[in-house]
């Protein structure tokens, strides 16, 4: 923790505390995320992952401590949160400064494979399509930090795998810093350079993922990291093994 200049950092958090009433959900937490680094944050439900992400997104100001984030940020939430009264392409460019919105929307939608849905109302999109539109809306802002709060949580298994591949691909092309909040250890290991385990209001453990990309679930190191993380999450190997079988 000797970093004093933030030259190489996309996120720098020191001594962050967030209380709801007299309960500190985040309690003296430190995080650094390097530029271009893909970090996954895992933790039990209710441990404060979304709270942390909302603070980094500048949506929650009731905090103590030091939080530094880049000016250009983008967020994709678990629900796509598209404005139902705007066609998809207008959603993508909503609030975007600069000219030629249609062309930029089309480019962003093409990147997520949704060109053909540019002119429809969001309500007619399928779950996966809506989530990709929400991703396009985030990417079109060309962010230095992309915040993802369980963006695949509501998708069916097949669509989720496709969406994970899409995010991996987009990140390799763009190289922006990513913080992916998830409760899925395998998802974290498939995508991230580093997996952080959140517990008791702090980052309790960090696992660097040195697996080569594209990653394979049947890699022996993958299984090792997986059981290490599950251990930190308080899920015994016996339970996890039973689930996989």
């Amino acid at each position: 923790m000797t970093v004093s200049d933030t030259g190489d950092l996309a996120v720098r958090v020191r001594g962050l505390t967030r209380r709801f009433g007299d309960r500190a959900v985040i309690d003296d937490l430190d995080i650094d995320i390097r530029t271009g680094e893909f970090v996954a944050l895992v933790g039990a439900s209710g441990c404060g992952k979304s709270t942390l992400l909302r603070i980094l997104a500048d949506l929650d100001h009731g905090i103590d401590g030091e939080v530094r984030v880049p000016r250009r940020r983008a967020v994709a939430f678990q629900a796509p949160r598209l404005m139902p009264w705007k066609p998809v392409w207008r959603n993508v460019t909503l609030g975007l400064p600069g000219g030629d919105p249609r062309r930029r929307a089309e480019a962003a939608l093409a990147e997520v494979g949704l060109s053909h849905r540019a002119d429809v109302w969001p309500k007619v999109l399928s779950g996966g399509e809506a989530q990709r539109a929400s991703l396009a809306r985030a990417l079109v802002r060309d962010p230095d930090l992309l915040l993802l709060d369980e963006p695949f949580g509501a998708l069916d298994a097949l669509t989720r795998i496709k969406a994970q591949h899409l995010v991996a691909e987009l990140w390799q092309r763009r190289r922006c810093a990513v913080l992916l909040v998830t409760h899925d250890v395998e998802e974290a290991l498939l995508l991230a350079d580093r997996v952080l385990v959140m517990r008791d209001g702090v980052i309790a453990h960090a696992v660097p993922v040195t697996l080569e990309r594209p990653r394979r679930l049947d890699d022996p190191l993958f299984a090792e990291l997986r059981s290490e993380l599950l251990g930190w999450l308080g899920v015994g190997e016996d339970i996890a093994g039973r689930r996989a079988a």
Binding site: D58, L59, R73, A74, V75, R81, L94, G95, L96, R141
Partner: peptide, 8 residues
């Protein structure tokens, strides 16, 4: 909230 993250 989503609109706020878009900088409106």
């Amino acid at each position: 909230e989503a609109a706020r993250t878009l900088g409106l």
